[in-house]
């Protein structure tokens, strides 16, 4: 029994360095992306992460065109593209009648089409698949350092802008009356979203990076009512998804990136069904006797 469990759960990581690297990378990503996802969800911007993930593609593609599959070049390119789209979206939303969601949709679609065209000009389909779906099983030292560094920066930056960010969600009128920091905090936050997605596309690709951000956050909402609790729960779900996804990938021979996101999806469905805070099962259960006051 125990040897079987060891072979199923521990041996893949104990025996293979690429699995250990993949685990460290995916967990590092979850630690930074989870709290970002929680704030995206609470700010009703859940699909913004998805749009941004598409938006960084042309930048990564330009980096790829210039330097091939180079981590710094593609990261820098992705960062520039993501921040540009975020700033342009903000500018259009403030200066014209177009709302932020429509402006973002326009820019990310433009970005995505441009990115795919650029990659197809030079690379093969294999290269394109790498950019779109990542290669979590081939993370080198530089990629691991990037993932850990980005998560560290994200957590510290989030701590710095935490107060205006939370207050802008719950009571923007009050924040506007005591401080002008709301706009700056929003921009820094969008920058962090881009940063996490750029780091994530190394491991999971542009299309899946947002999954490790939003699915754990959505699952966390079903387990706790406190913001700090949601951060912890989202990181926990992200970490469990990383472990489960990598093991699934190892044992069943499926691609690791999608396996991690599928695992996160399963944990989301589980939370949706069993979560103590509004899970479907608890809603169906007969109500306990009520109090008098």
């Amino acid at each position: 029994m125990i040897p079987d469990l060891y072979a199923a759960l521990v041996a893949p990581f104990a025996d293979f360095a690429f699995m250990r690297r993949a685990l460290v990378g995916a967990v590092a990503l979850s630690v930074g992306a989870g709290p970002i996802g929680v704030f995206l969800m609470l700010r009703r911007m859940s699909l913004t992460g998805d749009a941004m993930a598409h938006a960084i593609l042309p930048g990564a593609a330009v980096g790829f065109l210039i330097a091939g599959l180079s981590l710094p070049a593609m990261t820098l390119g992705g960062l520039v593209a993501g921040v540009s789209v975020a700033l342009l979206t903000g500018l259009v939303a403030r200066a014209t009648a177009l709302r932020e969601d429509a402006a973002l949709a326009a820019f990310y679609l433009l970005s995505l089409a441009l990115g795919v065209t650029l990659v197809s000009l030079k690379g093969s389909n294999v290269d394109l698949l790498h950019v779109l779906f990542g290669s979590v099983l081939a993370l080198d030292d530089d990629a691991l350092l990037l993932l850990c560094g980005v998560s560290t920066v994200t957590l510290f930056a989030l701590a710095l802008i935490y107060r205006p960010l939370a207050l802008e969600c719950v009571d923007p009128g009050f924040l506007g009356s005591v401080s002008r920091s709301g706009g700056a905090a929003h921009l820094v936050f969008l920058g962090l979203v881009v940063l996490c997605l750029v780091a994530g596309f190394q491991a999971l690709g542009t299309l899946l990076a947002v999954g490790v951000m939003m699915l754990p956050a959505a699952a966390a909402r079903f387990w706790t009512d406190s913001l700090a609790g949601m951060f912890v729960a989202s990181i926990t779900v992200g970490t469990l998804s990383s472990v489960a996804g990598l093991l699934g990938s190892y044992h069943f021979g499926v691609p690791a990136g999608p396996a991690i996101i599928l695992a996160a999806g399963c944990l989301y469905l589980l939370s949706l069904a069993l979560g103590l805070r509004g899970g479907v099962l608890w809603r169906l259960a007969p109500a306990p006797r009520h109090r008098t006051a």
Partner: peptide, 10 residues
């Protein structure tokens, strides 16, 4: 009405 009362804050 401008407050988001679903936000998890005490």
């Amino acid at each position: 009405a401008e407050l988001d009362r679903s936000f998890p804050i005490e």
